[in-house]
């Protein structure tokens, strides 16, 4: 059992859970994820580890209550326990001294870039973070990122906070201004956002790393459910990813595969609506 020691609401339906998982906290490196299962009847879902405190044996997840399991997770309280947490899984981000790195986080994807920001800074990079959300509520971790980045640019689709517009607009300006020149882009967030970012950087030849979130069961390479096409080859995101060269990823296929269980998910949410509504309004 993995106890939740702290829970904090970050925005309307985004929560931060701090979980006791000493082995994982010790082994974790930025870019890695864990697979968790709430209880005996639960499904296994992958979640990026946003932070680890090895000395205290704690790891942090930032979760948006969207699906059946994420809603249930967000409804759990400090003191309760998650039955299973396995990790850290996947390859760690290949961090190096790129020069000027722009990290682009969309929604809870910001949780993925946050640990990378610190590590990249430590390696001597200039780090700019562009973080976006539909509205002000959904822009998260701004203060945390400010403490480690050279520059943080929040954006909202509706203009309720920061610049009005998509993260791509802000990134595009950074590239055009070139003060200094953008050497690499690392991004995590909605698939269509990562696709747009990759399309934007391609003509400039800027190295672009995307963090993918396909459907997984075991997370150790055993099922092949997370297969993605990268550079025309089929790869397993759980062992060969989750980060890939954004210019090589077949995003259309990924979006389509992510819709596989949409009806099943709806069915679970509907049949447990009373229970879930009690948790998440």
């Amino acid at each position: 059992m993995f106890q939740i020691v702290d829970k904090k609401q970050l925005s309307e339906n985004v929560y931060r859970l701090e979980v006791q998982a000493p082995r994982i906290a010790k082994a974790y490196r930025p870019g890695q994820f864990a697979i968790l299962r709430i209880d005996e009847n639960g499904e296994r879902i992958p979640l990026t580890i946003a932070q680890a405190k090895p000395l205290e044996g704690l790891i942090t997840f930032i979760i948006q209550a969207i699906g059946f399991t994420t809603r249930r997770l967000c409804g759990m309280k400090a003191g309760e326990a998650i039955r299973d947490v396995a990790g850290p899984l996947g390859r760690a981000t290949e961090l190096e001294r790129f020069g000027h790195v722009v990290l682009v986080g969309g929604g809870v994807g910001t949780a993925v870039i946050y640990p990378q920001a610190q590590a990249l800074k430590d390696l001597g990079n200039r780090v700019t973070a562009v973080i976006g959300g539909r509205t002000k509520e959904l822009v998260i971790l701004e203060d945390e990122l400010k403490s480690v980045c050279d520059q943080v640019l929040p954006c909202t689709d509706d203009g309720s906070y920061g610049r009005k517009g998509f993260v791509t607009t802000a990134l595009s300006e950074l590239i055009e201004k070139g003060e200094p020149k953008v050497d690499a882009v690392i991004t995590a967030g909605p698939v269509m956002m990562m696709k747009a970012i990759s399309d934007l950087t391609r003509p400039f030849g800027i190295k672009t790393i995307v963090s993918l979130n396909p459907i997984m069961v075991d997370g150790t390479g055993m099922c092949g459910g997370c297969r993605v096409t990268v550079g025309g080859k089929t790869l397993f995101a759980c062992v060969e990813g989750p980060e890939f060269d954004g210019h090589e990823v077949d995003f259309k296929e990924l979006v389509d595969r992510l819709s596989t269980y949409r009806d099943a998910e709806k069915q679970m949410v509907e049949s447990h609506r009373c229970k879930l509504d009690g948790i998440i309004k």
Binding site: T69, G224, R257
Partner: peptide
Amino acid sequence: ENLKGVYSANEFLTRVNLMRAYRFGEYATP
């Protein structure tokens, strides 16, 4: 091969056996 509706036997059997997807509803794995 990457269409929806293509499984490895490992994935199909793991979903059904380990995750009890044959009792979907009671168990959350589809």
